[in-house]
Amino acid sequence: MFLTRTLPTLLAFAFGAVAVLIYYIPHGVAQEIERELSLWLRILYAFAYFLGLYSILNLHWTRIQRRQGGWAYSGVAIASFLVMFLFVVYNDGAGPFAPQASAGGYQWMFTYIHVACSSTMFSMLAFYIASAAYRTFRARSSDAAILLVAAIILMVGRVPIGHAISDFFPEAVAWLMEVPNLAAKRGIILGVSLGAIATSLRIIFGIERSYLGGGDE
């Protein structure tokens, strides 16, 4: 119980308290500790990625083993991972223990597969957003009308045709962004900040321990 729950809670408190305090200590050593902790966090994020990688590969491998529906696609996912992985490790002939090469198979796959697929995936959302806008318009409520009018003014005001039609559109966009949009964003930011601070305090003082997961072991 001590090792599985109490020790992690104590560690979270200790590191959390140190991270808070060093912000208010204007000394070189405090800044050095802050840089070191930030570096450690970056390294741990990299290790945490391996958990995600294990999870996705395990998911696809299990599908293949159990011959679940669409298992062949899981095979494609693992095969494409392995091909890209080989290029990553090969590193254009330099191997994995050298700075990353800016050419070779890795860059080729990045440019012609990763970039092409990601931009296509995101661009497809244009169609679904148009469909969502249509459904919003059909809602016929005052809130939906405000949302759509703001969106239309912004889009018309941000493209050359808006300037050509009237100076009203670019000026309206500037006002829209600097006054009502800013006010709403500021309200949201204040709410989110208060929530984040409250949650952080709960974590540091051991009230919030959901990150430890369930069970005592």
């Binding site: 408190f13 959390g16 945490a48 208060l194 601070i197 952080s200 974590i203 540091i204 430890l212």
Partner: peptide, 27 residues
């Protein structure tokens, strides 16, 4: 859990002063 405690603890510790300074007070 030891590693997650470190990540969550340091993350929470970094959040409090930065959010107070950059978001709450300045906004």
């Amino acid at each position: 859990r030891i590693s997650f405690a470190f990540v969550v603890g340091v993350g929470a510790g970094f959040t409090i002063p930065r959010y107070i300074s950059a978001f709450l007070l300045s906004q």
